[in-house]
């Protein structure tokens, strides 16, 4: 039988996930980080400001989860997600974007990404976390 201490430790390991926040807006990254840490204080968080940086960060840190902005300077979020999905198919990515167009939602769906629209609120972060928690 597993003791309470061991069980807590296993739970902590389970809770200690890694998240990469990709957004060209520093304010958005800050808001996402604060809302995620309110809910998952154990998580380790990395940040990237565009698609190229995101791919480098994924190579380096192999995050469990990613929030990906769409419209960014240089490589956009869709192109970056496509590359990440090919190289790391188990990484769960949420496209977190101001672009509410149906065509963007469809692109996300085709790539197997969750589609969550800005503004960044508690509700939209809960939506992203619910997607990450899916088996």
């Amino acid at each position: 039988m597993i003791g309470a201490a061991e069980s807590n430790s296993a739970e902590q390991r389970m809770n200690k996930k890694t998240l990469l926040i990709v957004d060209d807006s520093r304010v958005s990254r800050m808001m996402i980080r604060a809302l995620v840490l309110e809910r998952q204080p154990e998580w380790q968080i990395f940040e990237a400001g565009n698609g190229e940086e995101a791919i480098n960060q994924v190579r380096e840190n192999m995050p469990d989860y990613v929030t990906m902005d769409m419209n960014m300077p240089g490589m956009d979020g869709v192109a970056a997600s496509e590359q990440i999905r090919q190289a790391y198919p188990t990484t769960k990515i949420v496209l977190l974007t101001a672009n509410i167009q149906e065509s963007s939602r469809q692109k996300a769906q085709q790539l197997g990404l969750a589609f969550v629209t800005k503004p960044i609120t508690a509700a939209c972060i809960d939506q992203a976390l619910a997607f990450y928690a899916q088996p």
């Binding site: 807006s25 520093r26 304010v27 958005s28 419209n71 974007t97 101001a98 672009n99 509410i100 167009q101 149906e102 065509s103 963007s104 800005k118 503004p119």
Partner: peptide, 23 residues
Amino acid sequence: MEQEALTEIGNIILNALIGTLAN
């Protein structure tokens, strides 16, 4: 952060408008 925050506010509001028109 003022300028960056305002830019992001604009980004979200203008995309909500144009995205709705597109849809």
